[in-house]
């Protein structure tokens, strides 16, 4: 097994791979991250059968926590397989924070959280805001601390899809990009390393101040979301709400009662950023 270890926010991963290439890509992209001794999760990239190590190599996604029906990926998409496996460990195994499928950025110690279905643009928006004076905290999972109620950063590689790739390349031409992974189950994917401040300050969280439900591709609009609806949508966006039991209930009700929330529709990144700034000024 070729091996790489990386610390992302509070979580440390050990990634083992039967092939060298995905490990080299990870080492290159995560080179500014700490490399821990102790790890929380093990991820394995293995051939589906022994023959598949050489012949049309096919990567099975394994690790401490697995889905029985996770489809294998071609070796060219090994980096994606590793990232998916790391996400899976968090989704199925992490119990130290309430985990929301959401993105987050911070300014002045206060945090903007964005959640929505995939395609809502929450990931791209967080990446764009990360180069517009905000600190990027994460584009996939938001971790809420059950004790303080604060958002704990989890700034793994940003995963850009399809048209977001070009948008990001023009917004941050100097950023470090991974290889273009064409024709994945989710279309074209390209990873980009978060800005330096996101990595350097990844141990430092902040209090949530505004929750947005963005929706891409609709004429610009803002709608208030009632706490009951917010609560329900966030339970659906959480992979460990039920498992955390009472701590999950208390953390989520505290969040819902203290953080204003809005649904926003937008048709371009610039429009969204302007909306966000306006709402932030008024509500946060």
């Amino acid at each position: 097994m070729h091996e790489f270890r990386v610390q992302v926010g509070p979580a440390a991963f050990r990634i083992g791979s039967a092939w060298r290439a995905p490990i080299d890509q990870l080492a290159h992209l995560y080179r500014d991250y700490p490399q821990p001794d102790f790890t929380d999760f093990t991820v394995r990239l293995e051939p589906t059968t022994w023959l598949r190590r050489w012949l049309r190599p096919s990567v099975a996604i394994g690790g401490d926590y697995m889905l029985p029906d996770a489809a294998p990926l071609p070796l060219a998409q090994g980096l994606l397989a590793a990232e998916m496996a790391m996400n899976l460990q968090m989704a199925l195994g992490w119990r130290r924070h309430l985990l929301l499928h959401a993105s987050a950025v911070e300014r002045d110690g206060r945090v903007l959280v964005m959640t929505g279905q995939s395609g809502s643009g929450k990931s791209t928006l967080s990446a764009l805001l990360g180069s517009e004076g905000w600190r990027f905290l994460g584009d996939e999972f938001v971790l809420l601390d059950p004790v303080t109620g604060n958002v704990v950063p989890f700034p793994r590689l940003i995963s850009l899809k399809n048209e977001a790739i070009a948008a990001m390349q023009s917004a941050q031409p100097d950023a470090r990009f991974g290889p273009l992974l064409a024709g994945t189950p989710k279309g074209d994917i390209r990873h980009v390393v978060p800005p330096a401040d996101a990595i350097a300050q990844m141990g430092q969280g902040g209090a949530p101040a505004l929750l947005l439900f963005p929706r891409y591709g609709y004429p610009g609009a803002v709608r208030e979301v009632a706490p009951g609806e917010t609560f329900m949508r966030l339970t659906q966006a959480s992979t460990n709400y039920v498992a955390l039991g009472e701590a999950g209930f208390i953390t989520l009700t505290r969040f819902v009662k203290s953080v204003p929330s809005r649904a926003i529709d937008y048709q371009s990144g610039d429009e969204a950023i302007a909306l966000v700034e306006k709402l932030w000024e008024r509500l946060a």
């Binding site: 102790f38 929380d40 195994g93 498992a243 955390l244 039991g245």
Partner: peptide
């Protein structure tokens, strides 16, 4: 670090 992982395992067993 191990204590954190074991605490997590207890949360999961409780659940």
């Amino acid at each position: 670090k191990v204590a954190e992982i074991l605490a997590e395992a207890r949360i999961n067993a409780d659940y």
